[in-house]
């Protein structure tokens, strides 16, 4: 048993909170503004977000919950893609101020889940609970079995999130490196952009891995070191 706070394990890696303030909007500034307003109770009662992976849907949903709770509102995040969940997770959730439901495509074609979400949607609207739902595609492209659910998902404004541009990604790379206390040269950053997946999630994961190796080996994050990390050699 741990007896003193000072003895508690703290992970070495930086704790990366998905807050709305940390979201790099790029071409998605309007979506960010809409989500901020929903979280604070001043915006739309329902918003649907969709788009390819690594465009920040999960970040916005979790950030909305954190923002709502900071304002002493109640919020619940539900990642439907997670295994082990049952439709009863939706019970009584209309009592929350904000509900953020992620990966709605995971329940497409599952009749019990679709009816449960449809029922939650109705209860949420009746009780003034704001809904933020995200999926991999627009509602009519989700292949839902329940048309009633599809039409409800179409009820509010929907935002197709777009990926960050290369300069934005490069800027993000430099900033994350700086946060980690690592000096990442422009050339190394450019090398990563030219040779690695160009989405924020992959880049952040890579740069954190580079940081760990750089610390362990007591070496600067040079192109050769980055190349070895990218190849999985270290």
């Amino acid at each position: 048993m741990i007896d003193h706070p000072g003895q508690l394990h703290l992970p070495i890696a930086l704790i990366r909170e998905p807050t709305l303030a940390d979201y790099r909007p790029g071409p998605n500034a309007e979506a960010l503004a809409a989500v901020e307003a929903l979280a604070s109770g001043t915006g739309e009662p329902y918003i649907y977000l969709f788009g390819a992976s690594s465009t920040g849907k999960t970040h916005l949903l979790q950030g909305a919950c954190q923002a709502a709770i900071k304002l002493t509102r109640t919020a619940q995040y539900i990642p439907l893609g997670k295994s082990g969940l049952l439709p009863s997770i939706f019970d009584d959730l209309e009592t929350r101020d904000v509900l953020a439901i992620d990966d709605v495509q995971a329940i497409a074609g599952k009749a019990d889940w679709e009816v449960a979400l449809f029922d939650l949607f109705n209860r949420a609207r009746a009780h003034g609970c704001a809904l933020l739902i995200a999926g991999g595609a627009a509602p009519d492209a989700l292949e839902l079995g329940l048309p009633d659910l599809c039409s409800r998902l179409q009820w509010g404004p929907r935002y197709c999130l777009l990926p960050l541009s290369d300069p934005d990604c490069e800027q993000l790379l430099m900033e994350i490196a700086a946060e980690l206390g690592m000096r990442l040269g422009q050339e190394t950053a450019r090398y990563i952009m030219n040779n690695y997946a160009r989405d924020p999630g992959s880049l952040v994961t890579l740069i954190e891995r580079v940081d760990q190796v750089s610390l362990r080996e007591q070496r600067q994050p040079s192109i050769p070191l980055v190349r070895r990390v990218m190849r999985g050699e270290i």
Binding site: G41, P45, V98, H127, G128, C129
Partner: peptide, 18 residues
């Protein structure tokens, strides 16, 4: 326990009960 400490706040301002 199932339940909460506080009742809903400004969320209802948008529609429904409000």
């Amino acid at each position: 326990e199932v339940g909460g400490l506080e009742s809903k706040t400004s969320g209802a301002a948008v529609h429904g009960a409000a």
